[in-house]
């Protein structure tokens, strides 16, 4: 039987969205392969999560151990190496997330299973899989295939790449799998979680966000965007490089490692549209993108696009809005 294993991702008692997305894609793949779908759940006291996963898979492979209370690449690798060796799934699916990026590459290398990372397309083909990845910051798609032949394969899956489809529930069965972990000392140890400091402005509450990216070139040019935001009663937000360069505080950052925002209107100025950014703003009511590059990926998510040099167009927009508002 052809089994697919999805590794469930959860943190602080909650399953993360990428888990449901992988289960949805995994189900479609296992149906087309005539196989079965399993989900591996590792943790401490996570029966409630196992119950929630049950209808989405043929079985929940539940590994409970006090040592699995917090994610750790070393414990995950040990447990999953044993599980994958035993079950021999044709495909193991792991999120391309802070968690998956941290253990999937070493798990695959350890088991000598071919791995394709950050996949946005997975299609079965002659006992193997065809994949789609993005390169050059999302500007180009690449059709990729496994060169080294399995029979087992592993992928990490981009969060948000596959929709969650409603399907009739599966008769999921919870199977307890004994944990292979011992009290052996670990070379890496979890200490604690730390919450980002709360900023002065809460960008998640704004109706209009004017977000600025690396295209702004210099901290001196930030006021250009700030003035636009002020003129429409909006709030300033940004992409990650703007925070990395300390041009704006961390609280302004939109994206996977920043905030998720859902304003009525989101204006992206000089932002290319890397998936880590898009993940944080694609839920906006209306997205307007201003970019000088007509091929920028941001135009694929925006409803309205302006291909222009921001330094030329922003002053005109600002003046025009002032003028129109006075009427």
């Amino acid at each position: 039987m052809k089994e697919i294993i999805v590794v469930a991702e959860h943190r602080r008692g909650e399953l993360r969205d990428v888990t449901w997305e992988m289960l949805s894609k995994g189900r479609q793949l296992s149906e087309s392969l005539g196989g079965e779908l399993s989900v591996a759940l590792l943790g401490k006291d996570v029966k409630n999560l196992a119950e929630a996963l049950k209808p989405k898979a043929n079985r929940v492979l539940l590994v409970e151990d006090n040592r699995l209370e917090f994610y750790n690449s070393e414990t995950y690798e040990k447990v999953l190496a044993q599980l994958v060796t035993e079950k021999k799934p044709v495909l193991t699916m792991i999120g391309h997330t802070a968690m998956g990026m941290d253990f999937a590459p070493c798990l695959a290398a350890h088991l000598k299973i071919p791995l394709a990372t950050d996949c946005i397309g997975i299609d079965p083909k002659n006992e193997t899989f065809d994949l789609t990845r993005q390169i050059y910051g999302g500007k180009i798609n690449a059709a990729v295939s496994f060169l080294r032949k399995g029979p087992q394969y592993m992928v990490t899956v981009r969060a948000g790449a596959f929709p969650v489809m409603e399907k009739e529930p599966l008769p999921g069965e919870i199977v307890s799998v004994p944990s292979p972990l011992t009290d052996e000392a670990l070379a890496r140890r979890f200490l604690e979680y730390m919450e980002a400091a709360v900023g002065e402005v809460d960008i998640t509450q704004a109706d209009i966000l004017i977000a600025v990216g690396r295209g702004i070139k210099d901290v001196e040019n930030i006021p250009l965007v700030k003035e636009l935001a002020d003129s429409v009663g909006g709030v300033l937000a940004c992409s990650r490089p703007v925070v990395d360069k300390k041009w704006l505080p961390k609280g302004c950052q939109v994206g996977t490692s920043g905030k998720t925002v859902k304003p009525k209107v989101y204006v992206a100025v000089g932002i290319s549209g890397a998936f880590q950014h898009v993940a944080g703003m694609k839920g906006a009511g209306t997205i307007i993108a201003i970019n000088k590059d007509p091929k920028a990926p941001i135009f694929g998510v925006a409803q309205y696009g302006i291909v222009a040099d921001l330094f030329k167009i922003l002053p005109v927009i600002k003046d025009k809005i002032k003028q129109l508002k006075q009427k």
Partner: peptide, 20 residues
């Protein structure tokens, strides 16, 4: 290598943005 790149193409834009 585990994987090989077979071909590259421009991402499909879907509906795409209405250009102003």
């Amino acid at each position: 290598s585990d994987i090989q790149l077979d071909k590259v193409f421009l991402p499909p834009v879907g509906v795409g943005a209405e250009m102003l």
